[in-house]
Amino acid sequence: MKKLLFVADPLSSFVVKKDSTLAMMKASQQRGHEVWHCQIDHLKSVDSFVQADCKQIEITPHEGSWFKEVKTQVHKLCEFDAIIMRKDPPFDLSYVTATWFLSQACLEGAKVFNAPDALRNHSEKLALLEFMKFAPPTIVSHDLVDIKAFHERYQDVIIKPLDGMGGQGIFRVQANGLNLASIVETLGGNGQRALMIQKFLPEIAAGDKRVLLIGGEVVPYGLARIPQAGEVRGNLASGGKGVAQPLTQQEVNIAQELGPLLAKRGLHLIGLDFIGGYLTEINVTSPTCFVEITEQTGHDVALQWLTNLEKHIQ
């Protein structure tokens, strides 16, 4: 039996029917491990050790009250067998501060998944720049001149902020260029924030496909998040429909190339996003879609995750 601490959003905020962190907790409990939880604002350094106000929980089968508290206790983070960082974006100063605490905890002997330094070093948008051979035409710039030139070349583009999540702040600008300057000024704070601009991929109609990597290994099914009702965003948080699908050979090849490389950097769980075979984002903070893939295919993603995690904490 191992003691696992999940650093996550408040338990009351979990969407019980489809929460991937909850699926990970359930798998851990079923395997006999202790499940603990804390929030990033519970992290602190006292008596020369990083600690947290932690809550041990037992997951119950009742959706209305899906857990019961076993006990609350202040723990040194190094006393846990594994710490699973599952705080959802935004990647703001509070998030970064949490990773600084976790980095210090690692120096004190803690094992953190995903590794906090790797989380800081891999922007979910900018990490794509290392792998541009797999990406659609893309630029990242503060400069409206650059963005106008890119739009003039490709005519139909997607503009998105670097710190967005769940499809927030994503705009499509078509050939007429309507409101291009206004969108760039608003999203970019008049040049204060860099933006990512990508060629629009009409294949989005078939879905924005999430492919999961666990310990460098590819989960054999992905979740195509298909835009609904005239939307260009497939994100489930923006109303997209999730359809589990086997991976294409192209997706497998790219995932197998990136998986071992990123796993060596401490990224145990990754969500790659594909549109029409192009890699568009590399998600590392709190990848989801466990429940949808498991329910639709029978492949237990949480069990695959836990089995791989256990290899690192024996």
Rank of each mutant, 00 (worst) to 15 (best):
A105D: 05
A98W: 00
H75K: 06
C78K: 10
Q104G: 06
W100T: 05
A98N: 07
F113I: 00
L102A: 05
V96N: 11
W100D: 10
F91C: 06
D92P: 14
G109K: 05
E108G: 09
E63R: 11
I84F: 09
I83T: 00
H75A: 07
V112W: 06
V70A: 05
E79H: 05
R86F: 02
T72L: 11
A98C: 08
P61S: 11
P89T: 04
I59Q: 02
L102C: 10
P61R: 09
W66N: 13
W100I: 09
I83P: 03
F67Q: 07
K76S: 04
D88G: 00
F67M: 08
V74D: 09
F80M: 02
K76M: 01
V112P: 02
E108L: 08
H62K: 12
L77E: 01
L77W: 04
L107I: 10
I59E: 06
V112M: 08
F80G: 03
S94M: 14
V112T: 07
F101P: 01
L93P: 09
V96P: 07
V112R: 08
L107E: 13
V74L: 08
D88L: 06
E63W: 09
C78M: 02
V74N: 08
D88I: 02
W66V: 15
W66Y: 15
H75R: 08
K76A: 06
A82L: 05
F67G: 05
V112A: 06
H62G: 11
E79V: 07
F113S: 03
F91G: 06
C78S: 12
K68F: 10
I83C: 05
A98R: 01
I83D: 00
W66A: 13
K76T: 02
D92V: 10
I83Q: 00
I59K: 09
M85R: 05
H62Y: 12
K87Y: 03
K71C: 12
T97R: 12
F101C: 01
W66T: 15
